[in-house]
Design a binder for these strands. Structure first.
Lengths: 220, 220
DNA sequence: TCCAAGATGTTCCGGTTGGTACATTTCGTC
DNA sequence: GACGAAATGTACCAACCGGAACATCTTGGA
């Protein structure tokens, strides 16, 4: 009868630890789903990369699709948690928008696995996202901040009226997501030059310029 | 002994018709792979939607992956065939570029299945594309035309020097592809407004403006 | 100290699925 | 008109894989 105190979670003895087991499974699942897609992923493979067994996957997540949905929710959660940490309140509208756009670009680059899960969900026509009230009801900090910056900019008279924050978000997302999601095919065909650090910084700068130009004047 | 003349290919009697059989299989395969991904697609399903049998798939394409690669090659071929038909020679650089960009946006919209296959290939890290000499060696008309338009514009003094056609292509593709590839998740979260006709036309116009602004002056 | 509910491990199963063996027909050509 | 190669159809299989059955252990509370 050992007394493994096990203060910092995760230990083997074994002691029961539902939360750690769930987290362990979910983290492996995200990486497997991101790498192989929904039908390409093997539940046995996930289990084998886990400290626990396949039994636990079904115990906690019901079935493969249930696990996938949780992974999808987690992907969105992490992406949005990162956005929420961004503070723009101290900056004037122009600079705030520039910072937000540049951040979005970098943030997507830093989280390729989550972008890939979103791609996979798109392949499946967003059916599981539609099922998940959690993910659908989730706040989208980037859009909120964007709308707020637009409002401030218009109030200050530096942005033109009639801006559509959702359309702006769509444009920023498009470049930021494409940069990650289509990198394999794009670089296979056109070479890897655009994905080296210097080129990425230039693309990011151009994205910021494009968005600012779009927001400032209709026709100069 | 019937004498089914069978002038316009595709008939059952049956007569032998290797080319029609191959085309039949490939066309079904494209739609199935686009809908379900590589591992999500069932060879039996493809066979059942065909006028022929599973036997023929393996006879002509070797295995599932071989069929997938052919579908991938065909997807790229169709996309680029469409681009090649575009004629820009009669237009001045600015208008030519505008037409090319608008066309690319529309062309992607019109071919969602092929965009989806490219997405799927990205999920698989472009491994099969790398294997396919056919697809890799294929000409990319859109990039050629883009480079040509840039050259003309610079020669005429209306575009700024130092343009990178590949980067421009990347930007145009990003918006055009994202518009199709991420529509399911995006519209599930933000609603379908951006995907109605009027909004799509506005997005296209803004894309054209963005690219022109990028190309004309460094800092006005 | 005991018990019920929760957590975990082990083993196995039945349907699915990519792929093949075997048999038959068509067709160009000599 | 016959013969061999190409084309096609049918039936089948072995492996894989999601999921379940069964058994055991842990733990908090009464």
């Amino acid at each position: 009868m050992t007394i493994t105190t096990d203060t910092e979670t995760e230990k083997r003895g074994w002691t029961q630890n539902p939360d750690a087991v769930k987290r362990d499974i979910l983290s492996v699942a995200i990486s497997e789903f991101a790498a192989n897609g929904l039908s390409g992923t093997r539940v046995d493979t996930i289990a084998s990369r886990t400290r626990t067994s396949k039994r636990m996957i079904y115990y906690y997540f019901g079935d493969k699709q249930g696990l996938y949905i949780k992974a999808l929710e987690e992907a969105y959660r992490v992406l949005r948690e990162g956005e929420a940490a961004l503070d723009l309140d101290d900056l004037p509208p122009r600079e705030a928008l520039a910072k937000l756009v540049a951040f979005t670009f970098d943030h997507h680059r830093r989280n390729p696995d989550f972008i890939r899960i979103v791609m996979i969900e798109n392949i499946h026509h967003a059916d599981h996202l539609a099922q998940s009230e959690v993910a659908r009801a989730m706040d989208v900090p980037a859009l909120g901040k964007l709308a707020e910056v637009c409002r401030r900019g218009q109030e200050a008279g530096v942005f033109r009226p009639g801006l559509d924050p959702v359309a702006l978000h769509w444009q920023v997302c498009a470049l930021s997501v494409f940069n990650v999601s289509n990198r394999p095919t794009f670089s296979t065909i056109f070479g890897t030059a655009l994905f080296e650090e210097a080129a990425q910084e230039r693309l990011r700068a151009q994205l910021v310029e494009m968005i600012l130009a779009l927001v400032e004047q209709p026709h100069p």
